[in-house]
Design a protein around this nucleic acid. Structure first.
Length: 869
RNA sequence: GCCGGGAUGGCGAAAUUGGCAGACGCAGCGGACUUAAAAUCCGCAGGUCCGAAAGGACUGUGGGGGUUCGAUUCCCCCUCCCGGCACCA
């Protein structure tokens, strides 16, 4: 309805209503149209075009989008639309990371089954996304909590198992004694249970499934160097997380009788060159040997327990680094294999069981912590490294302790005295290996990925335990192991699935005898580790995806999301890709070519949160200002990689800008409809253009250049949008001078003159420039201009560098680096002319009069600087 | 402690390669239109000082130094803020 009206009366603006930009009217009109065309944003299956895979991180279906989502998707959507307009075959899908805790939480609170709650939320959020106008190929939608997706999680798990990369082992987990269940790390808040604020979380040993990500630790680290399209910050975070450390394992022997834990104490050190300075061995309080050492020594046991308690407390408070170093002598000794020296074995609270071997050799002279500890307990401090003097003639002097430098020479080290540190490390490691008491090794901070969760709302782990055959994988043909629906989560003890006999009881695939099903589910990070491959072939029911199709689309050209996923999701995804490559499913080593991490949306300087009451709701913004304004503002208010401080007055300004564009086109659309747009390339304009019109043409080409350049990688959409604003301001100024559109020119009935062709071209380009950022308005205006073709398929405007060039330049003239005057010169004026005019300038004259000219600096097109004395 | 990113008007920000600091927008002020208001349109606007005004002088990008004809930009030192890792052996 409204569309006809605007086409009929675009230039007879006697009724103000026609000029009023009503985002609701425009947006609902196009929203309805887009709803009816499902193929609108579909990627081509077979295409000779170049591909472009742009992806935003899929959301958890919490129930409502927040502004962070809007910003994230506005960035991706702008890029997708831009690439479409540049004739790429664009893949721009969306899905739902829909397994996870909140669904169970909601189930308990509202008594709604997790599936129902989740699917309901997805419906709500999908509607929001559509209303916001995001151009997704919904035919490829992936919902991770549905069996047609999670069956492939199970399939992958079986592959991991087959290759020996999924294994089961006992490990320490967080346990809430009130819930009687394991908690994920994220469910532990300050060392307490998220549901019982008064209850401290305990550590328990449980059998868990692990994926051997450490097998790829080195490759994951090395390949970070290849990811030059990733932010340095993320690469650094991953490097830290992987935490590679080169060193040596050395086995000390327990002196005297040994218990079940044996008599070997392996220590890891990066400084084996200092081993002759080791004056004690320090064990973590949880070290396996301690049970033996304390078996007949309840006193020692009690002291070790205290150390454990101290560690735990420090961990709860979060400052394990600040803990005061305590230790206790075990009364026993270990033998240094290099010199057969007996040194005391201590247990200390600063030794961590989960790094290295949980045991160290203590070298007080050359390690800060060891030094502090040795001083406290009066342990021997033995200097074994002398710093090399800069001057070889000089005798090395004893350094202040602890001396931790590497540029040194061994002393007091038996036959190795005189070696430099680097040499000694090599020699001693080799010696240890030859003699079977150690070797050079690499440790990682990265641990194997424990994926077992004692929760309901996740992918069932496809494993069966048979009394006779032990652990037996579910045969591929029996997948998926369906997650049962009617489960009482609230009253479950342990894994909720364990309370369902129908689920638990199974037959062994090997012997056919009675067996028990695994009742744990997978970590939800499994779901998001490979989902983006599924988009390429979302309905495949014979494989997770077709390798050929994935090969066409991968790697992802541009991935966009929050930096909070820099480690977990993005490391797991890289790991999964490498595993799939080794399976032969894909050929790429890395999933993501370019990564962009956008900043947070904050308000009044703080993260939006319900408790703070500063949450901005996208629905409200859409209702008040329209989706275009909400999107445009989220791109305009800050460069996308920085945090954005939301201001309602700011989005109001954006709405005004859109209205300004709308009014301009409404007033001038008539010109276009009588103009042959196809032939109106500005270069072929008839010659007589007024200076003002040439100025507009120049501004247009400059604007196209600025916006296009920014899309090529810099992505400062805030400046793109200000460039478009400047263009619109220029058009208004031009209108003011010319009175164009205000009173329609009767000349338009005959052949259009140059100015009219130019104006038509400007309007058309303006709409195209706006299309990636404000799709609703752009579509409306596109139609208003009489265009029949879908705007997404229209070509992105090209700029003409010659037309973008200024004819006349205002050149600042500095004297001794201070701005003193400006002169106007033709753009291509040679140096001699510019300098001549600069020196002739009245103000310049007054500043240089009576002074000696030292130097004249001319920067073409930029400035003149005259240096005088 | 180590690593990464920041700091520019009242506010969000711009300056892409060392070359006019503050584009664009918000808030503000003035004007036009209006009975009035809203909306809209036009204009002003870093700070201090001089001047009735036009205009002019000085100063200014967290602080201090340096390189340069010229520094928000490059180098050195320092402060503060945000993020990551951390008794990592």
């Amino acid at each position: 309805m409204p569309q006809d009206k605007t086409q009929e009366e675009p230039t007879t603006s006697d009724r103000p209503n026609d000029e009023r930009y009503d985002p609701q009217r425009v947006e609902t009109k196009w929203f309805t149209r887009w709803q009816n065309d499902l193929s609108l944003y579909a990627a081509d299956r077979d295409s000779t075009k170049k591909k472009y895979y742009v992806l935003e991180m899929l959301p958890y279906p919490s129930g409502a989008l927040h502004m962070g989502h809007v910003r994230n998707y506005a960035i991706g959507d702008a890029l997708a639309r831009y690439m479409w307009m540049n004739d790429y075959n664009v893949l721009h899908p969306m899905g739902w990371d829909s397994f996870g805790l909140p669904a169970e939480n909601a189930a308990i609170q509202n008594n709604t089954p997790p599936r129902q709650w989740t699917l309901g939320n997805i419906a709500k959020m999908k509607a929001q996304m559509k209303r916001l106008g995001f151009a997704y190929d919904w035919s490829r939608e992936v919902t991770t909590c549905l069996p047609d997706y999670y069956r492939w999680n199970q399939w992958f798990f079986l592959k991991f198992y087959e290759k020996g990369l999924a294994y089961r082992k006992k490990s320490r987990v967080n346990w809430c004694p009130k819930c009687c269940t394991v908690l994920a790390n994220e469910q532990v808040v300050n060392g307490r249970c998220w549901r019982h604020e008064d209850t401290l979380v305990e550590q328990r040993e449980l059998e868990q499934w692990f994926l051997r990500i450490t097998k790829y630790a080195d490759e994951l680290l090395r390949d970070l160097d290849k990811l030059d399209g990733w932010p340095e910050k993320v690469r650094t975070m991953q490097r830290n997380w992987i935490g590679r450390s080169e060193g040596t394992l050395v086995d000390f022997k327990l002196d005297g009788p040994a218990g079940p834990a044996g008599s070997t104490i392996s220590v890891f050190t990066t400084r084996v060159d200092t081993i002759f300075g080791a004056t004690s061995v320090q064990l973590a309080p949880q070290h396996s040997l301690i049970a033996d050492l304390t078996a007949s020594n309840p006193d020692l046991r009690a002291k070790v327990d205290e150390l454990i308690a101290e560690q735990r407390k420090a961990r709860e408070v979060g400052d394990i680094g600040e803990i005061e170093k305590h230790g206790v002598f075990t009364g026993r000794y270990a033998v240094n294999p290099f010199n057969h020296e007996k040194i005391p074995i201590w247990v200390a609270n600063y030794i961590l069981m989960d790094y290295g071997t949980g045991a160290i050799m203590s070298v007080p002279a050359h390690d800060e912590r060891d030094h502090e500890f040795a001083k406290k307990y009066k342990l021997e401090i033995r200097l074994v490294i002398l710093p090399l003097a800069n001057d070889p003639e000089e005798t090395a002097t004893e350094p202040p302790l602890p001396y931790i430098g590497h540029e040194g020479m061994l002393i007091n080290s038996g036959p190795y005295g005189g070696l430099d540190c680097a040499d000694a490390i090599k020699k001693l490691s080799a010696l240890a290996e030859e003699n079977g008491f150690g070797k050079a090794t690499i440790t990682y901070r990265l641990k194997d990925w424990g994926i077992s969760r004692q929760r309901y709302w996740g992918t069932p782990i496809p494993m069966i335990y048979c009394e006779k055959d032990g652990i037996v994988p579910v045969p591929e043909k029996d997948l998926p192991v369906i997650l049962p629906e009617a489960v009482d989560i609230a009253h479950a003890v342990g894994s909720p699935l364990g309370s369902l006999p129908d689920f638990v009881n199974a037959t062994c695939p090997k012997c056919g005898g009675p067996a028990r099903r695994e009742t744990d589910t997978m970590d939800t990070f499994v779901d998001s580790s490979w989902y983006f491959y599924r988009y390429t072939d979302a309905h495949n029911d014979r494989a997770p995806f077709d390798s050929k199709i994935a090969q066409y689309w991968f790697p992802i050209d541009q991935y966009i999301g929050g930096v909070e996923h820099a480690i977990l999701h993005l490391i797991y995804s890289r790991f999964w890709t490498k595993f799939m490559r080794d399976l032969g499913l894909i050929t790429n080593d890395e999933p993501i070519k370019r990564l962009f991490t956008q900043g947070m949306v904050i308000k009044e300087g703080a993260k939006m949160s319900k408790s703070r009451g500063n949450v901005v709701s996208p629905d409200e913004m859409v209702a008040r200002y329209g989706a275009d304004a909400a999107r445009l503002y989220s791109l305009f208010a800050a460069p996308p990689d920085r945090d954005l401080d939301w201001q309602d007055s700011g989005i109001e300004g954006i709405r005004k800008f859109l209205a300004r564009v709308y009014r301009f086109v409404i007033r001038n659309a008539g010109i276009t409809s009588t103009t042959s747009v196809e032939t109106s390339l500005a270069t072929s304009l008839p010659p007589p253009l007024s200076p003002e019109a040439r100025q507009i043409r120049r501004k247009l080409h400059q604007t196209i250049k600025r916006v296009t350049d920014d899309f090529q990688g810099r992505w400062h959409f805030n400046t793109c949008i200000s460039a478009i604003m400047e263009l619109v301001n220029a058009l208004y100024a031009y209108e003011e001078i010319q009175g164009v559109g205000r009173a329609p020119s009767p000349a338009s009935e005959t052949s259009p003159d140059g100015t009219q062709i130019l104006l038509a071209e400007v309007q058309r380009s303006l709409v195209l420039l706006l299309a990636p950022f404000a799709p609703y308005l752009a579509h409306e205006l596109w139609e208003m201009l009489g265009e029949k073709e879908n705007l997404l398929k229209a070509r992105w405007p090209k700029y003409d560098a010659a037309l973008a060039k200024e004819e006349e330049l205002v050149i600042p003239v500095q004297i001794n680096g201070k701005l003193r005057s400006r002169i106007s010169v033709p753009a291509d004026a040679p140096e001699s002319l510019v300098l001549e005019r600069a020196l002739a300038d009245e103000k310049v004259q007054s500043f240089i009069a009576g002074k000696q000219l030292v130097k004249k600096i001319f920067v073409p097109g930029k400035l003149v600087n005259i240096v005088v004395k």
